[in-house]
Nucleic acid binder design. Structure first.
Length: 595
RNA sequence: GGUCCCGUAGCUCAGUGGAUAGAGCAACAGCCUUCUAAGCUGUGGGCCAUUGGUUCGAAUCCAAUCGGGAUCACCA
């Protein structure tokens, strides 16, 4: 509708003023609330004044008349200053509802898997500690943008690059060797990732003690950190790992397998999954050849000690190490390698990396280096840079125990959902399995919505108390609206397919507003994909639910005696429910039939 | 110090070139013998960090300043 109106305005300028104008100077927006009773859409005439060579009011009158006479769904118009307010005909809204109300996939496209894929990498956990709140934001964003892109017809490949090797992993391994007494998840009843995380913390505790002792002996802080026996042992262990030492590799495999079992549980509880897993232990050597090639092509250079560097001072990024003097890889080496490998394997349209904004510099460098190496596809790399999650007490620090554990948080929101539901006495006729499922749906819905409704780019404040609030702008509010509609439909005792939407209905303000919002879903879905922002979907879905509740509160559906009106309102309710369900699904949130 | 991001109601956040800047929470006042009150209605609450510029029009674009954060590792 918007596009055809824009075209009509372009035509109007041609016919009325004999002026050729570009479509993008025609600006149309939803009419402001204060004029809402008389209009639906507003055309901004200021940009057109220089073509009409008339006053804004006169221009608006001209174009208004033209639109009213030539566009069948423009019923009437009013002019307020330079704003041309258009009233959309009843028949348009009714026809819109007639065409779509039973379409359970309204605006949702099927993913076209013949297209070049969009690779979305997210999660990327370390295998030395459990997932925390920061990972939750990462996972939810990665999962949701994947869903949004698919709903826009894209072929999406969801991948996870697990950071399963390195000094941090050796720290847990070493601590377990020293103080673990053979403890296993089975023997201790601890979840695998929690068990390994415990030893990571234990390492750090002992390590700090050693540093303190060394400093007490008059050694400088920096030297103490390097000389502490524990860190040196860990370094040795890493070298043995890289050399393929059987004993170290065996321990590494064993402890990682515990972590993976733990992660599987966490991912499953969040409803997160991947099409393909990458492991750093298998990819960290990639990229060395690339660096050597860049060296022979004179794009990179050797330092005095033999390390390889790239000079990006022209790009304002300084100099960056690509390969250590001893020939081992650094983070950048590996990322160059995996990017290249992925490109060769999939020839993707885009490679999206869901990684926190603390790595902006890294990804700037990655792209610049690939460009320097003349890989045209460097532009296909998008760093989806999201903001940090902060707590009311300040930043999360794993070593200070101020992290919010992912499993604990999920358990907590589900428990809160249980308590709230019980207090409200909402569990009539629920069997225990159905009740547990409801608590899960509500708790997770609250958590996911709370995180996804915020613009990904921005840092967000995570207040545990607010995240489990179930009123207002929350997931459960939207879920409640859905359940309410389902209840209405159940009680109506009519088949959706049998509903007949009459063309002769006179729709009221609430219905018009609701239909207008429904028609906007298409635009929001495209916008969310373009900007990779689940927040647009979240905010839209909330608006829609809120509008439905107004409608519900003011207008009777089942008790409406006029059958045409009753069927119209049922169809509208059903249609709204479809969009709510699909919108929530794009956020990875389920909706309950009852609550 | 260089680079990048952010600054909107007491709090958490929308709005990114259009009309008198919105929502939720919190506070206060109403609405359930009536389709689910996890809801709805109303009241109060703002120098859109500051200053200048561009524009018919700026919270939105540009510049500077002030606050907050990130980053600038032979860590990943």
């Amino acid at each position: 509708m918007w596009q055809s109106l824009i075209d009509a305005c372009v035509d109007a300028c041609q016919v009325l003023y004999n002026q050729e104008i570009k479509a993008d100077i025609v600006h149309i927006q939803k009419t402001n609330a204060q004029f809402r009773q008389e209009a639906d859409l507003t055309v901004m005439v200021f940009p057109l004044v220089k073509f009409s060579r008339k006053a804004p009011e006169q221009t608006a009158q001209d174009i208004g008349n033209y639109l009213k006479n030539t566009v069948d769904y423009v019923e009437d118009f009013t002019v307020v200053k330079g704003f041309l307010n258009l009233k959309i005909a009843n028949s348009f809204w009714i026809s819109f509802l007639q065409h779509h109300f039973s379409d359970t996939r309204f605006c949702i496209q099927e993913a076209d898997n013949s297209l070049a894929p969009i690779i979305v990498e997210y999660s990327s956990p370390n295998t030395n500690k459990p997932l925390h709140l920061g990972h939750i934001r990462n996972n939810l964003l990665g999962d949701s943008i994947s869903r949004i892109l698919k709903a826009n017809g894209k072929n999406v490949l969801q991948v996870n690059l697990v950071n399963d090797r390195g000094i941090h992993i050796c720290k847990s391994m070493l601590a377990w060797q020293k103080w673990g007494n053979g403890e296993t998840p089975e023997s201790s009843g601890l979840k695998g990732d929690k068990l390994v995380g415990k030893y990571y913390v234990l390492f750090d505790t002992h390590y700090k003690q050693q540093i303190a002792e060394l400093i007490g002996k008059g050694i400088g802080e920096e030297d103490a950190a390097k000389q502490a026996p524990l860190i040196q042992e860990a370094q040795t262990m890493l070298e043995r790992w890289e050399a393929g030492d059987a004993e170290v590799r065996e321990l590494w495999k064993r402890m990682n397998s515990w972590v993976y079992a733990g992660f599987d549980v966490s991912y499953a509880s969040m409803g997160i999954s991947f099409d393909k897993m990458y492991y750093e232990s298998l990819t960290y050597l990639l990229g060395k050849d690339l660096v050597h090639k860049g060296l022979t092509d004179d794009i990179f250079y050797h330092n005095d000690d033999g390390a390889v560097w790239v000079d990006l001072t022209d790009e304002g990024l300084g100099e960056k190490l690509l390969l250590r003097a001893n020939g081992t890889s650094v983070y950048m080496t590996q990322d160059l390698g995996t990017a290249c490998t992925r490109y060769d394997e999939f020839h993707p349209e885009r490679m999206i990396y869901v990684v926190g904004n603390e790595q902006n510099y890294h990804f700037d460098v990655l792209k610049k280096v690939l460009k320097k190496m003349h890989y045209a596809w460097a532009d296909a790399i998008r760093h989806f840079s999201y903001g940090m999650v902060e707590l009311p007490e300040g930043k999360m620090k794993s070593r200070e125990g101020t992290v919010v554990d992912a499993d604990d948080l999920i358990a907590e929101v589900i428990e809160t959902a249980r308590q709230t539901t019980m207090e409200l006495g909402k569990l009539d006729n629920f069997d225990s399995e159905e009740a547990l499922n409801l608590f899960r749906i509500l708790g997770l819905g609250g958590l996911k919505y709370f995180i996804l409704k915020v613009d990904p780019l921005k840092n967000m404040m995570f207040n545990p108390k607010e995240s489990i609030d179930f009123t207002g702008n929350t997931g459960p509010f939207i879920q409640y609206t859905y359940a309410r509609i389902q209840s209405l439909l159940r009680k109506s005792d009519t088949e959706i397919g049998a509903l007949n939407v009459s063309s002769s209905i006179n729709i009221n303000e609430e219905e018009r507003e609701l239909l207008h919002l429904c028609s906007d879903f298409d635009r929001i879905l495209h916008l969310a994909a373009e900007e990779l922002s689940p927040a647009h979907i979240a905010n839209y879905t909330f608006e829609l639910a809120k509008q439905y509740n107004q409608f519900y509160q003011r207008i009777t559906v089942l008790k409406e005696e006029n059958q045409e009106l009753r069927e119209f309102r049922l169809a509208l309710s059903h249609f709204t429910a479809i969009i709510i369900k699909n919108g929530m699904s794009l956020l990875g949130i389920e909706v309950p039939q009852r609550m």
